[in-house]
Design a protein around this nucleic acid. Structure first.
Lengths: 222, 222
DNA sequence: CCATTCTGTATTGTATACAATTTGGGTGAG
DNA sequence: CTCACCCAAATTGTATACAATACAGAATGG
C-alpha cells in the first residue's frame, strides 16, 4: 500500500469522503497529481479505480467529475446491496464456522460498546460495521460477489451522513446484527438472507432520515 | 473505439475468448504491447479493465494471469446473473415503452432466423442475444445495475462453448425471450423477473451440458 | 440577433525512459 | 545435501515529454 497509485487512491477518496471535493465538481488529473505529490500516471490509475467504486463519473469524452448521488441513486444502490448482501448472508450461513461466528460476535460487541455511550463513537461504529459485513462477505466465499459488492459499499454520502444517525438507528443496527448471528448459529441461510436484506433496507431509511435532517440543518445555518 | 487502449482491450479479450491465451497463462505487458502494436501504457489500462471483467487475475505482486474458471466459478457467476438480470427485467417491465418492445421483438425474430436452419448461426445468435439483454438492461434504467452486470456478462468459457449448444437449447432460449416479451407487453414486473431468472439458470445448465460434452470430445481426440 | 465555424487553450491519451520490485537460480556455509 | 542468502535478469511502477482531442470564446456569415 506504499505505492504511489495507492496513495493517490486513498487521498482522492478521502477528499471526496470529507466533502473537500464536492459532487459535480470537475476533476483534473494534473491538479490531483500535484496535490498528491505524484505524477499523472498513478492518478489516472486511481481515478479508474474510483470510477469502478462509482465515486468518479466520466463523461463520454473521458473528463472526470465527482459523482453526484441523488436520493434515487442512493436508493437504487441500497436496493442492489440488499439483494446482494442478502445473497451473501445466505451463502455465509451455509459456510459458517464457529471461528468466524466468534469473530462476528466480537465485532458486534465492539459496536455495542461504541454506541452505548451518550455520544456514539461513530468512527468505531463504521469501522466495526464494515468489518462485520466484510467478514460475512468473505465467508460467503464468492470472489465475484465480493467484487460486485465492494463497488457498492463505498458510498460517500452514506459516510458523511452517518454522524447524523439517531441513537435508535444505531441500536437497531446492532440488534439486527444479533439476529443475523442467531441465524448464522443455526446455519439457516433463508433466515439470514431475509434479515440481511431487511437490515440493508432499514439502513437506507436511516440514511434517508439523517440525510434530510442534515440538509435541513444546513439550510438553517445558511 | 479508435483509441489505443480500446484496441488493446478488444485484442486481448479476443485472444482469451478464442483460447489463444489459455487459462492460467502468465501475461506480460511488454509482450502484449508488441502484439497489439501499442505501448505498455494502454495495455496496462486494458489489463485493469479485464481484471474487473474477471478475465485477468493479478497476484499479490501485480503479475497478471489469464483467469481460470472452474465449473463452480461459472455456476456462481450465473447465479448472480440470474438474480441481477431478474431484477433488471422487473425494472424494465415498469419502464417499458412500445418502441423498446418493438426493438426487442425484432431482436428475437433475428434470433429465430439464426437458429432455425440446419446449422445454427451461432455468431449471430450470440450477437442478437447480447443485444436483447443489453436492451433490457438499458430499459431497467439503473447505472449501477449496468455497471455490475457488464462485469458478469463477459464470460470467456461461455462464449467458447456456445458452439456446442444443442438445437433444443437454442430453441428454448428463443421461446423464453418470447415469454419475456409477453410479460413486458403487460408491464408485469414480477412475471418478467421470474422468467428472466429462470432463463439465466437454464442457460447455465445448457452451458454446463455443452461444456462437459466438449471436454469429452477433447479427451476423445487426444 | 442567432447560429455556426474557426481557432487558441486546456485536458486527456500515448510513448518512452528510467526506477523499484520481484523472480529464479546459483553459490557458499553448515 | 539442504538451506539461506545474494545477485542478475526480467517485470512492473512512475515520471515526463509529446500527440491528439475536446472545450470555450471570438469571429463571421446569414
Amino acid at each position: 500500500m506504499t505505492k504511489a497509485s495507492d496513495r493517490a487512491y486513498s487521498m482522492i477518496r478521502a477528499m471526496i469522503l470529507s466533502g473537500e471535493l464536492v459532487a459535480g465538481d470537475p476533476v483534473r488529473e494534473e491538479a490531483l497529481a500535484e496535490r498528491c505529490g505524484v505524477s499523472r500516471t498513478p492518478v489516472r490509475e486511481a481515478l479508474r479505480r474510483l470510477e469502478v467504486d462509482l465515486m468518479i463519473r466520466k463523461t463520454d469524452s473521458q473528463r472526470s467529475f465527482v459523482a453526484d448521488w441523488s436520493l434515487d441513486d442512493v436508493g437504487d444502490a441500497f436496493e442492489l446491496r440488499a439483494m446482494l448482501e442478502g445473497h451473501a448472508a445466505k451463502r455465509a450461513a451455509r459456510n459458517m464456522t464457529d471461528d468466524v461466528l466468534k469473530q462476528l460476535r466480537s465485532c458486534n460487541t465492539a459496536i455495542e460498546a461504541a454506541i452505548s455511550g451518550r455520544k456514539p463513537d461513530v468512527a468505531t461504529f463504521l469501522d466495526r460495521n464494515r468489518e462485520f459485513h466484510a467478514l460475512v462477505l468473505k465467508t460467503a466465499g464468492s470472489r465475484r460477489l465480493t467484487t460486485l459488492l465492494t463497488a457498492l459499499i463505498e458510498q460517500p454520502v452514506v459516510w458523511r451522513t452517518a454522524h447524523h444517525y439517531s441513537p435508535e438507528a444505531f441500536r437497531r443496527s446492532h440488534s439486527e446484527h444479533d439476529d443475523l448471528l442467531a441465524a448464522f448459529g443455526r446455519r439457516d441461510g433463508a433466515w439470514a438472507e431475509t434479515i440481511m436484506a431487511g437490515h440493508i433496507r432499514r439502513a437506507f431509511h436511516a440514511y434517508s432520515d439523517a440525510h434530510l435532517d442534515m440538509k435541513a440543518q444546513e439550510r438553517g445555518a445558511a
